[in-house]
């Protein structure tokens, strides 16, 4: 058993009022009581619902994107807490709290700095076919650009040793932060691995998640960062 008191779960939420309670209850019932939630300018009841929980709750007054929110949460954690491991967890209900233990163990027991969750090594339910093609294409490009051999790049479920964020600062505000993260993990020589995780796509999560068309935007940012930054 891992010591869950050493772990903090970092989530970002944008208009997740329908599911945020379930997600928070799921984490808390699984023993993950240290939660930092950054509300990224939600216009629904997400913030008010989250306020009822005993968690660290921060709020962006206007929407700034997933990368920007993760950076805000990270800065809060580094400045105000001593947790050893930071876990990124999506607020739309796609992730399974049971997977966190497998993500964290390599950090606490095997000396890894970063552990990526991979839906393609694990299980994935109800993934739209077009999403699978887009993701696979993105993985090919990322592996080629950064010289890595990963099976899943844009999965929001991952864990980090706290010290990693002394060297990694997200400057990409939107979804292209994931490529930036991979680039900086490789550049800084952090020890990383992938572990299998389960992702469940629901009608809700598909409607809330990244649009496939975003892939072009992410690709543009990857090229910009790789060759012009």
């Amino acid at each position: 058993m891992i010591d869950k008191n050493k772990i903090v779960v970092l989530m970002t939420a944008l208009n997740e009022a329908k599911v945020i309670s379930n997600v928070l209850n799921g984490l808390i019932n699984s023993g993950y009581k240290n939660i930092v939630l950054v509300d990224d300018g939600s216009t629904d009841e997400t913030y008010n619902i989250a306020k009822r929980y005993d968690i660290f709750l921060l709020r962006h007054v206007v929407n700034r994107g997933k990368g920007a929110s993760l950076q805000t949460g990270t800065e809060f954690i580094l400045k105000n807490t001593n947790f050893e491991v930071i876990v990124h967890f999506d607020a739309d209900g796609q992730h399974n709290p049971e997977d966190i233990e497998n993500l964290v163990r390599p950090i606490l027991e095997e000396g890894f700095d970063v552990v990526f969750g991979s839906r393609f090594l694990g299980e994935v339910e109800n993934m739209p076919y077009i999403r699978k093609i887009v993701l696979k294409f993105g993985i090919l490009i990322s592996n080629f650009l950064y010289g890595v051999k990963l099976t899943d790049v844009h999965n929001g479920l991952r864990a980090f040793k706290r010290e990693v964020f002394k060297k990694i600062v997200f400057t990409e505000d939107r979804f292209s932060y994931a490529s930036e993260l991979l680039e900086k993990v490789v550049k800084n020589g952090f020890k990383y691995k992938e572990v299998p995780v389960k992702i469940v796509y629901t009608e809700y999560s598909i409607s809330k998640g990244q649009k496939n068309i975003n892939a072009f935007n992410i690709f543009f940012h990857m090229i910009k960062r790789r060759f012009f930054a």
Partner: peptide, 17 residues
Amino acid sequence: IEGNITKIVREIALLKK
């Protein structure tokens, strides 16, 4: 400009906390 807006929004979030 986008980057600067993010910095301001982040600062407000952290100060408010």
